[in-house]
Design a protein around this nucleic acid. Structure first.
Lengths: 259, 259
DNA sequence: CGGTGAATTGATCACCCTCAATGTCCGTGG
DNA sequence: CCACGGACATTGAGGGTGATCAATTCACCG
């Protein structure tokens, strides 16, 4: 029921498990055992390509909670795949205001914001001690010219981000506060399910402020909304640990406006 | 001062000029004279590649005002480059609510929303009689494997859209109504300037409702905001025709909150 | 000249932000 | 061990921004 990696034991893991910093060597170890292989290496690639791919594109890096994997303005050299943990992407307005623009869970790709200008447009900050695969962009590009399935995979990755961001624009532009929070919880839930984890229980890792920033509302409104959802029996929230009790009810939030 | 194509004569062009429908043949004429060549064909491409590229990737299509170039759910086969006119991209929630997620002016690329799932995730609707270059995606992909500068161009195109959408998420999530409208006007102004048109005067083509949808507010609030900007001497608006009088003043909107 | 779609402007109200107090869980140090 | 400080979360009270509802004007067009 509980998933060992994605879902921490209930009410525990306020601090991430100590093992997570050791799981990924800080040096550039090959990640031939990388759980994200399917991301770096699509099924379509011939088996005999494998060794060269692994040699070429996969090393690992650990990022401590609160530390940046990269910052806005950093030169863009690598893409990343989250191996364990989770990160947020943050964009800054020139007046200093910041907003969370994305959330990446284990298995998801990171760093595409740097392709357009050879500089990262946003920062990526670890929400917990995490580890990422490093994929040198130059090498990946070269590979994509030789292996068409790799090209497809990269294109889809970028296309998915484009669609995901457009969907988030809809969330920010069209939905009420209740609907935004519900949509967010369902999104996380589905992404967990896709990766084989529990869709019902998870540890959000972000603060209420991060959530609010991502959803275009204040932390107080996030907190109030979660409390109301709890009273309505839609979720069971203990701080950052969320249990989705009634997913269908969440999906109907806003549609009916009452129970 | 006035630009012949981007800026229509003041107070005219409520209807697009009749010539615009003839400018682009409805058949698949080669666009060897396509003004958007730089988009399809980056400078880096060797001259002797040119003929094959033109033969491969460029035909044209006209789209009447209000008509869709493609609809959400349509199978994805082509990318497009706007040759003349302008289009909006629209995404629909399952409950039927729609939101404008993007605006494409002449010279800009369109259709990347279909890459991730081989189906378009949003619809593209012409804001005026327009014409687009058709770029078959399969052929483009093939070309990108042979010509590295073409690969770079496509990647940058996708990367730019990713960054642009993230920036729009910031607009929707962090800015006040005044700031959103100001940011929008400045964005259009800069995009016009980049394409060699006037940054001070342009015809917006969208309705107040489209603008509001794109900016996450109601058409009434858009209208009121524009009126207030006009009273403050920041702009001079006559319906959809906008003259930016004080761009620096627009940039300061929200920073000081008063004149 | 009436009809339609779009834009403007006004009046009212609700949603959500702001400010504030309190509570909880930490890790740290007395 | 308990006290303390800090970060985060929750909850309340009040106010402002922008939505909603509505009326009017304007341009275009059949």
């Amino acid at each position: 029921m509980l998933n060992p990696t994605a879902v921490a034991p209930v009410r525990a893991a306020r601090r991430p498990p100590a093992s997570s910093t050791q799981r990924a060597a800080r040096s550039t170890a090959r990640c031939s055992s990388c759980a994200m292989r399917h991301l770096c290496m699509p099924q379509g690639v011939a088996a005999n390509d494998m060794p060269q791919l692994e040699a070429l594109i996969c090393s690992a890096r650990a990022v401590r909670r609160g530390e940046p994997l990269y910052r806005a303005g950093d030169s863009f050299d690598n893409l990343y795949a989250v191996r364990s943990g989770s990160l947020k992407t943050v964009m800054a307005h020139r007046d200093g205001r910041e907003q969370v623009t994305g959330l990446r869970l284990a298995g998801e790709a990171l760093g595409l914001d740097g392709i357009s200008s050879d500089q990262h447009a946003c920062s990526a900050v670890a929400l917990e001690d995490s580890s990422v695969c490093i994929i040198p962009y130059a090498a990946l590009k070269h590979l994509c010219r030789e292996v068409s399935s790799m090209q497809d995979r990269l294109h889809k990755l970028m296309g998915e981000q484009i669609v995901r961001e457009a969907a988030q624009m809809m969330v920010l532009g069209s939905l009420s506060a209740d609907e935004r929070v519900a949509a967010f919880l369902l999104d996380i839930s589905e992404r967990n399910a896709q990766r084989g984890y529990s869709s019902a229980e998870f540890n959000l890792r972000m603060t209420r402020e991060d959530m609010g920033s991502y959803l275009g509302m204040t932390l107080e409104t996030v907190s109030r909304t979660l409390s109301r959802f709890q009273k309505r029996g839609l979720i069971d929230a203990q701080g950052r640990f969320i249990h989705i009790v009634d997913p269908d009810g969440l999906r109907k939030v806003g549609a009916v406006a009452n129970a």
